[in-house]
Amino acid sequence: MDPDLLGRLIDRHAPALELFARQWCDTAEDVVQEAFVKLAGQHPLPDQPAAWLFRAVRNGAINAATASRRRRRYETQAAAIVAVWFKPDPAPEIEPDQAQAALAALPLEQREVIVAHLWGGLTFQQIAELVGSSSSSIHRRYQAGLATLRTQLGVQVS
């Protein structure tokens, strides 16, 4: 794989993929890194690398979450990892902490659709193929999630 193309894919999609992986597990950066390394070993390159990356990250994050739950079962003290989902912004329209809290309160089915569409840039059709559902169902989840977020964040939105 061309290193320049891989670098551009990392620059463009790595933050959104990390945010996407955080919806399931705490080791998002490791999952994303493994996904990019797997993509580099693909011959030929997938037709839609972004959709392929989101699928790989989703599978890896679910597996990592399962392993993490199994590991924590035997740990006396689980590390309280509170990851920051968004970078601080000096003049935000929405406070990042508020947005993170509101987003985290959504059901996982709505969260993954909103993250994949808003920050990942995937189409509803691509998300439908990613999660194994129909495009209309994905659109309904997205609208329902936005409605919930608007209710919770309405005062912050100008």
């Binding site: 945010l19 990851a83 989902w85 970078k87 935000p92 939105v157």
Partner: peptide, 11 residues
Amino acid sequence: ALGSLRPASRI
């Protein structure tokens, strides 16, 4: 407004 937020990344 949500899209203007930049995801934090440690990649």
